[in-house]
Amino acid sequence: MNKKSMYLALGVVAVIAAFVLGGVVDLFATEEAAGKPEVVNVYTSRHYGVEPVFERFTQETGIQVRFTTGSDALLRERLRAEGKNTPADVYMAVDAGNLWLAGEAGLLAPVDSKVLRDNIPANLRDAGNRWFGLTRRVRTILYHPGRVNPAELSTYEALTDPKWKGRLVMRPATHSYTQSLVSSLVAAHGPARAEEIVRGWVANRPTLIDSDTRILEALAAGQGDVALTNHYYLGRLLQANPQFPIRVFWANQNDRGAHQNISGAGVTAHAPNRDNAVKLLEWLATAGQADFASSNHEFPANPKAAAHPIIVGFGEFKADALNIGEFGRLQADSVRILDRAGYR
């Protein structure tokens, strides 16, 4: 080795040593924090706006919240692999199907809490008390008022009408939002009719865009006239620009109501700080409920909590009262229906 490459190697080693040292110190810092004060550890796939809410919880209770983010499925596998040694106390997900699956896989322990029972409606929580919905998100019909008269709109099913050919913008089948919407169709009509409805949508050649925000922007730009998205994406866009031209239409108001999903949480089966975990859930369902829901323009699961003014402006509506756990039970069927119907 010549002198130059020797210096290079030495330099590289020095830099790395510095970084490793930094990393190790960082690690010990977090380890130390774990030892002393009261903590609750959260695995969460909901990360939008959780930090200020957790900070408020810490201020009010003295319990520190440490959280690690990730996608629903990855965090569930991590929980499963860690088993009894898991540091996680709470599993928080943004889709009922994932909570249902975690419950069925034995990753969540039942919580017998009067506070949660009294504040979260029965259809928004697990019958076995393993998980609880905390916020509601409604997937409904969005339209451009310049090109669509709301009188033309009625139900998800009616979007199969050929007059919507080339005018629909929807989310691809890979997303759980699409899947749980189809599950609600299966619950309402049975699998055969649900497949017919999906085929009807596909026949109208919808534009598929894998981002609700982008779907709304496409609608505003004129790529389509009617779309299906979660309501809070419009809430966000309106917050940034009150003139954003898209309107909400609440679907299926004359029958079962608009399709809603939840974000929610459960206490893990091997939670090292179980009491704190239950406290966090109860707090999120009551004192922290309005903030938690409003941080993402979602509707509170607790009917006593106030919703964000922007989404209150979308008007009163009736939501499908189906138990949210059904979306998990029916999800695989719905994906098969989507695949068979050619909805990609």
């Binding site: 983010t69 990855l74 596998e77």
Partner: peptide, 11 residues
Amino acid sequence: PITVMLRPLGY
């Protein structure tokens, strides 16, 4: 994905 699955809590 690997970082998501294996990183220490809060890291």
